[in-house]
Design a protein around this nucleic acid. Sequence first.
RNA 1: GGCCCCGUAGCUCAGCCGGAUAGAGCAGCAGCCUUCUAAGCUGUUGGUCGCAGGUUCGAAUCCUGCCGGGGUCGCCA
Length: 586
Amino acid sequence: MNVFSDFLVRVKAAVEAARVEPVDGGTLDLSRVVVEPPRDAAHGDLATNAAMVLAKAVGLKPRELATRIAMTLARDPDVATAEVAGPGFINLSLEPAYWHKVLAAILTSGGTFGRGALGGGEKVNVEYVSANPTGPMHVGHCRGAVVGDALANLLAFAGYDVTREYYINDAGAQVEVLARSAFLRYREALGEQIGTIPEGLYPGDYLIPVGEALAERYGHELKSRPEAEWLPLVREVTVAAMMEMIREDLAALNVNHQVFFSERSLTTGGHDRVAELIDVLRERGLVYEGRLPPPKGQLPDDWEDREQTLFRSTDFGDDVDRALMKSDGSYTYFASDIAYHYDKFLRGFTTLIDVWGADHGGYVKRMSAAVEAVSGGKAVLDVKLCQLVKLFRAGEPVKMSKRSGDFVTLRDVVDEVGRDAVRFMMLYRKNDAPLDFDFQKVTEQSRDNPVFYVQYGHARTASIFRMAGEEMPDLEPTDDVLAHAPLVRLDDEGEISIIRRLAEYPRLVESAAASHEPHRVAFYLYDLASEFHAQWNKGKESPQLRFIKHDDRDLTTARLALVRAVASVISSGLDILGVEAPDEMR
RNA sequence: GGCCCCGUAGCUCAGCCGGAUAGAGCAGCAGCCUUCUAAGCUGUUGGUCGCAGGUUCGAAUCCUGCCGGGGUCGCCA
């Protein structure tokens, strides 16, 4: 039950009933009519701009038209008042009985309140993390992992058919370097002194067990063979081990992908899908041999002007055309990436979402261009860029160096502050705004720690039910009993206000999903928790407002209904964020 | 130099597809308080929405230019 779409229908009906005709004789375009919560609560419960957006077309003054529409709306039994205000808004106040119906609907929905039909089962592909399989995940990967995961949850909740995907970069020079590094550890495992790890190889200790595994599997066999022979074997084992490690790291964050897509698989197994992709583009006249102008500004030292295989990304809004082949004849990363995104399109996805770090911002245009090109404009790529996370400890910046092993791993962070705190904080900012993460603050039990504040809101609901169970054991507050409680007893402004907030949830989910912005759910939950805590606190000053009233069974049941609904929505929202809704805080 | 992101209260940030007198937390200020197990609570001060134009009934929001901060810039992964 969505209050806003419910009333949008009624407003449109009221427009019909006003019997206004467009001056140009056509049909009236109602698409710009919206029903939304007014910014100022003093303006009522709902506001519509109908009169303002339609006035011109029907040749009336906005307020005049508004008055006619409002007359019809005022006769709606759920409407208490319909007033024309400002430049032509129609403000509606709803009868408390309507809010009681909303509350009952939440309780009978069995936790599906807010679950949307927006997606209509449309297939959406969310690709996130896609960290190089060359070592454990570091803290920089956290944000993208959480944003991608929560976004996928959100879209699924809003009715999309979501696939969560990870692209494994297992084909480039870096994984060869990785294989050589592991080979060194393999020799070490066989008893050789390897000394310090040479510059350019991966020095991390995490390759030691890989070396041991290789020694166990191959004995001394690989040592005598040329690199061209051992490298593919070592690479395969090592990449698999790295991916295993990454999966465990992700699992610690409660991030789980459905599809792990190997870059290497594009060109193995009998056919070369990157070549096929280039052929497809060539057939469409989007590939040519040519020269690129040198980059503006600082010219790279090794710049050479040469002819190369180029994709016409400028036809799709990119700044320059982009190379598909390297000077050594192998494919560029971009070429494989197009082939990979083409594969997504061929698998039936028309909405593609990639979550990247901000340092890849320069890549967005060409990739969007490529998706448009390979799909013939049928698929759209939305890239969510995640800005940097700055780490602090009690206000002091945490120093990080890229030098050997001296970085903060994802696991370090999760182990120290817990998965819930990490997830919530990563979502308590827009993805394109930088984020400060303070180890101290996120575990603090206070109002300025939103994780705690929201989770505590849920715990408090549970606490109220525990208490009710002890003090009024014959109440049996099941969802069904609560849904049929005498909700008419909920007449305090604070209580109605909470229901109003709850009623916003479906709309919030819809808009957050439509704009691919999971952070809005986090902010909403903070507001809801805030309102709920405030109502609780009112019970201190005014005992008649307490949720449990021993001498008034009906009132207690009605209030427990409200508490249950709050619990249900907080839990639902936290579920989207991938954060626990605890029954007690410890 | 090109491109991308950001610029909103003293600080950290929300602001949905253009909507009314621009919101929250912290800090500040003023009261209250040891509880229906829990973070003390309530109220309040504070803003030329970076600047200048444009679009229109209406702009923090859309467009253009500029200023300031960050990122990025052939074949790298």
